[in-house]
């Protein structure tokens, strides 16, 4: 019952957030100097007479006032119609559906890899706190936090694709193959380098949090007791350290979805990997407003889901918080 109430509360928050984000982005986009008719017609703008232009504007509802336009857009959003992409001349929903899968694969791979590596490295750092191993790991993390992700991508591209020739230079599938014949393996193969870039950067955050959390735990009296009982090393870690540390660490990792998405935009651009990130850049550069708006909304949902999962992990999976705890 409590869970249901919690879910309803969260859904309402998501709805309010989406309304606010859609309003804000619509406001920003309508303030922009980009002329949607010009963006649609492109180079042949000169051949369009004023009458034709008016007809196009009327067809799209551009002659109506901004609030009316916004209302129309929200109404069609509610029915699942995201509009038509000017760039791809196809419904936005179709354009996104294809790219969503690619991006999902990329971000999923990167997220898992970063999480696993981060927790392992962070644990090692905490268990060997203040030794040279710990110092090396911390140095590595601080270095990565300052590294431009797209530059790292460029370096990896140079080393693995250009010099060693191990991975393809771009795209999410081999060139010259019909899309129905692209196997899952092909997709994963093309996603490895971009995902690696993303996860190398993402490791730093998880690793530092894991280390901090584990150090907190290791300083508590029950660890001293456990040590006195003869538990050391791996046994101590798995019996007492890991169990206490893993939920907060995974939560932090879920809450980093925003950075993951931002990183994916850059990484997809470097590797010309056709995902949502590349689409938002193309949409922005070419004035494809419907596509831009749709991806902004998707990214807001994405971040929200990440934060939601982080919350759920904290509040509903940990039995200590569930029992008699205050969930407000």
């Amino acid at each position: 019952m409590q869970l249901v109430r919690y879910l309803i509360k969260r859904s309402i928050r998501l709805a309010i957030l989406l309304v606010a984000v859609s309003f804000l982005t619509f406001l920003l986009v309508s303030l922009s100097p980009i002329d949607p008719v010009r963006a649609y017609i492109g180079a042949e703008m000169l051949t369009v007479s004023p009458e034709q232009r008016e007809a196009i504007e009327a067809y799209w509802g551009l002659d109506q006032s901004k609030p009316v336009q916004y209302w129309q857009w929200v109404k069609s959003l509610a029915t699942g119609d995201l509009g038509t992409s000017l760039l791809y001349r196809a419904p936005v929903a179709d354009v996104i559906a294809d790219r969503f899968l690619s991006s999902f694969l990329l971000m999923g791979l990167a997220w898992l890899l970063a999480g696993l590596l981060g927790i392992v490295i962070g644990s090692v750092a905490a268990m060997r706190a203040n030794t040279w191993v710990d110092r090396m790991i911390r140095g590595y993390c601080y270095l990565l936090l300052s590294t431009p992700g797209f530059w790292l991508g460029l370096l990896l591209l140079m080393i693995f694709s250009v010099w060693l020739g191990l991975f393809p230079v771009g795209l999410s599938a081999p060139v010259g193959v019909v899309s129905s014949e692209v196997t899952v393996l092909d997709r994963v193969y093309h996603a490895i380098l971009p995902a690696l870039t993303l996860s190398i950067i993402g490791v730093a955050n998880v690793c530092l949090h894991t280390r901090e959390k584990l150090l907190d735990i290791l300083n508590q009296p029950f660890i001293l007791q456990a040590k006195a009982n003869g538990f050391t090393g791996m046994k101590l870690y798995f019996r007492h350290g890991f169990r206490n540390m893993v939920l907060p660490a995974v939560s932090v990792h879920f809450a980093s979805f925003g950075e993951l998405f931002g990183g994916a935009i850059l990484s997809e651009q470097v590797f010309s990997y056709p995902g949502l990130g590349e689409a938002i850049v193309e949409a922005g550069l070419n004035g494809d407003i419907p596509l831009l708006l749709a991806i902004v909304l998707i990214s807001a949902c994405f971040v929200f889901i990440g934060n939601f999962l982080a919350d759920v992990l904290y509040q509903w999976i940990d039995p200590r918080l569930r029992k008699g705890g205050d969930q407000s």
């Binding site: 957030l17 980009i34 925003g258 935009i265 938002i280 831009l292 990214s299 994405f302 929200f304």
Partner: peptide, 20 residues
């Protein structure tokens, strides 16, 4: 909260799109 609910880079793209 609203500004933190969008990825940084997406907000940046939107604003520079608006300002050209």
């Amino acid at each position: 909260d609203l500004f933190l609910s969008l990825p940084h880079l997406v907000t940046l793209i939107l604003i520079s799109f608006t300002l050209g």
